[in-house]
Design a protein around this nucleic acid. Structure first.
Lengths: 341, 341
DNA sequence: TCTCCCCCTGCACGTTTGTTCATTCGGCTT
DNA sequence: AAGCCGAATGAACAAACGTGCAGGGGGAGA
């Protein structure tokens, strides 16, 4: 046990005594050969505990990937119906109906984080929004090694009271770490006070660079904000908006936001004043990304979700079971309406 | 057992009471949400034991797939070197050096069976040989649902003493079951007594059909026979060959066989008399398959393996660590020679 | 309608696994 | 050179898990 970890990054050659190497071998023995940890411990000349830890490490670090395939003939009726009705590939996360909203969010985020690795690959530009959903997700990401990928922040996070920036940058960093990607922060407030300031800022070259990046995204990942739900989203309790703003949103018939860009139940955004001060990407830009992953939990977000679907913002949807059910029930009756509650 | 499984193929609608459905849900909860089996039991209104069994079922039927990714920067030095030297993508199975040959075979077969599912897909013609390695493998296949695939027997299995056919057909059936594929048996002896008989047979239309199938294989899977090893392969102890045959093989400098077609250390087959009576596919035919997976365990097969590599029979190699090491050591000195023993 | 048989269930036990804790080990600073 | 700090280790405990077993429910066949 002379050279505990990575063999010789200093020396720069052989000696396969790395921790990762051991973890890899342990994983082989455990998952591919069904040995008991005990047996593996003997083969590796260490204790069972260490093997347990190695395996945890292997899982946590993405050396081991566990995926679940529906036998294509029975893709949960829900997913099937969502696909047919909304042309969106859905992943329904099973959650008991009586689960609390926090539980629900946590569990959807956990599943989403694990599912996400399928979509991430090398040489991609990955747009990431922020909010409570994204934050929960970021805490559970399954690492996956990629080269030359880039995490791009979709919308600003600064506000009046808290910096918000730390919060967002921490979140972004987690994404970056998990995929070994560069992180591009977007150091602006969530909302400008004056549209003119935004426009001025948008002409800055450094801002243009960000916007160009956003326009060439391969994947976008976002949650849904629901301004009028009982459990308000992060944006709505963080001091980003003032009472007058709310009233304006209400007047405009807004049902939700994606990356702080607001929309109505039919997906339209025209004439919503607040958007001219918001820093998130125009939906036209967003829709250029071939893959747009939306993570939703809790039926409070149902109106927001149907709106986002109507706006064509989503290609892949990760949603909890209850909400998925309501979504299908709601749209069963007629085209693209929001459900009862 | 009419309705035990799939919910209502009879009734033809709802009631998601299928066992597979439950297994799927349990797997989600367990592997994607990290719930304890206990918690899952409550959500499913059943006992922990049942959940444990559901999860076993899920794994055994391939609903859950566990795969291991080397972080591309450190692909076991061995695999790397084998790739460079032989242009073959290798999977080295870790096995302690002191393991017995049976252990070793069993463990390689287990790993191979699990790795195999990566290669199998829908609409494929899959050639399968037989032998102790393939047999062990067949017992551990991880099922994977495919459509319209076909398992094709590569070489006959009949012999003088035992039928051998049952053995082979059982093996083939397991492959077929695992992948939901049709099985095409090849009902001929392993070796004809008279080359002329073989030729006659080869003109039969039913035989031609088999040969055409073989010629259009997408994947071939085979082990390596080693006629002169201390632990003889199945072919060599099953009463397929007679003393005179052995002597002929020895005289011809044969080092191994693939699907009962024999070759020398340099991969050549010309002038090996026995081949004209053998029923396996000509190497020219075999090499038409874009993917040719070879499973090898035990250094007794090293000469056979190097020969097969020299003949260009292999695109993907699954091999135990010890043998892999010797392979690399052997070929380190010069081009493509067989190793010491 | 009755019976048989198979398969599924939940319990109870023994095994396997995760985790806490005290300890050691190496590296780095003072 | 001594000492401190974080990381890693193995022992021991507690939780989680797998499996043999007896009981029960429900179809297929008589």
């Amino acid at each position: 046990m002379v050279v505990t970890d990575a063999a010789g990054p200093a020396a720069g050659h052989e000696l396969p005594t790395g921790k990762t190497r051991d973890a890899l071998r342990a994983a082989h023995l455990y998952y591919l050969q069904d040995l008991t940890m005990d047996a593996i411990a003997k083969e590796l000349h260490t204790s069972r505990s260490s093997v347990s830890r190695l395996l945890s490490h292997a899982r946590a670090t993405g050396l081991v990937e566990i995926s679940i395939h529906s036998p294509l003939d029975l893709p949960s009726r829900l997913e099937q119906e969502i696909l047919e009705r909304h042309e969106v590939s859905a992943h329904v996360v099973p959650v008991p109906d009586h689960a609390s909203d926090v539980d629900r969010l946590e569990r959807v985020a956990l599943s989403a984080a694990r599912i996400l690795s399928r979509f991430i690959d090398s040489n991609q530009t990955i747009g990431v929004a922020w909010g409570s959903t994204m934050s929960a997700m970021s805490r559970h990401l399954a690492p996956k090694a990629t080269h030359n990928s880039e995490i791009v922040q979709l919308n600003g996070a600064g506000n009046l009271r808290t910096t918000g920036i730390l919060y967002a940058s921490e979140l972004l960093r987690r994404f970056g770490d998990a995929f070994g990607a560069r992180v591009q922060q977007f150091p602006v407030p969530a909302f400008f006070d004056d549209p003119a300031t935004k426009e001025a800022f948008w002409r800055e070259r450094s801002t243009r660079r960000m916007l160009d990046l956003q326009a060439s995204m391969d994947v976008a990942i976002f949650g849904i904000g629901s301004p009028f739900a009982e459990v308000p989203s992060h944006v709505y309790q963080g001091g980003y908006l003032e009472r007058a703003d709310y009233e304006a949103l209400s007047r405009d018939g807004v049902v939700g936001d994606v990356a702080t860009v607001f929309y109505r139940a039919d997906g339209s955004t025209d004439g919503i004043a607040l958007n001219s001060r918001a820093t998130g990407p125009d939906f036209g830009i967003l829709r250029r990304a071939p893959r747009r992953i939306c993570v939703v939990s809790g039926q409070a977000k149902l109106p927001g979700l149907t709106g986002a679907l109507a706006a064509g913002l989503v290609t892949d949807l990760i949603v909890d079971e209850g909400t998925a059910r309501r979504l299908v029930e709601g749209s069963a009756v007629d085209g693209g309406n929001r459900a009862a509650d």
